[in-house]
């Protein structure tokens, strides 16, 4: 199991590197699709069918929106010599990578080995949860019953994002 996940994640890393370095913006966007669709296979291997259903549709719609934006333009990334700002940002990147590496090494000792998850909250959410909420799908029970506030907040964030899109794209005001 762990080997299969690692191989698929390796393919995702290759796709991501190509997406970042491609000359043509259209192929960059489509290589980003490689990463998203590989994630669907990972979700199926990790026994999360809800996430797989959502991710496969969401990735398609993201691809449609990105292609609609890119096809409007000249589609080429202009290469230019790195200036002083380029060196500053490269140095910042190296420093940030070392900071994240330090946090990762500190936190990976707290995590369990893959497949032996012992989260403290897992027990109460699983034992008898089907009879507490009445829902056979435990994920729906957690989303709408135990953690209803979270879901309401995220729905409001969705409405706010739509309002932002409408505000940005409106050219003429309504009469």
């Amino acid at each position: 199991m762990e080997l299969a996940i690692s191989v698929i994640t390796g393919l995702m890393i290759l796709g991501a590197l190509y997406a970042i370095h491609a000359k043509d913006l259209l192929s960059s966007v489509i290589a980003c699709g490689i990463v998203g669709y590989s994630l669907v296979i990972c979700f199926l291997l990790l026994k999360a069918p809800d996430l797989a259903i959502v991710q496969i549709v969401v990735d398609t719609i993201t691809l449609i929106i990105m292609v609609a934006v890119v096809l409007d333009s000249s589609r080429e990334e202009k290469y230019s010599k790195p200036d002083t700002m380029g060196y500053v940002s490269a140095a910042t990147g190296i420093i940030l990578i070392f900071i994240f590496l330090w946090f990762f090494i500190a936190s990976i000792q707290q995590l369990d080995v893959l497949g032996k998850s012992t989260l403290r909250m897992a027990g109460p959410y699983i034992e008898g949860a089907a009879y507490k909420t009445g829902s056979a799908n435990l994920v729906t029970g957690v989303v709408f019953d135990f953690r209803g506030y979270d879901t309401m907040g995220e729905a409001v964030v969705l409405v706010t994002a739509v309002l932002g899109v409408l505000t940005i794209l409106r050219l003429k005001g309504k009469k």
Partner: peptide, 18 residues
């Protein structure tokens, strides 16, 4: 498998699209 991380990711995917 643990349903709590799955429930968190489920909403985060849709928010990521928006």
């Amino acid at each position: 498998v643990d349903p709590l991380p799955q429930a968190m990711v489920l909403t985060a995917i849709v928010i990521g699209l928006a």
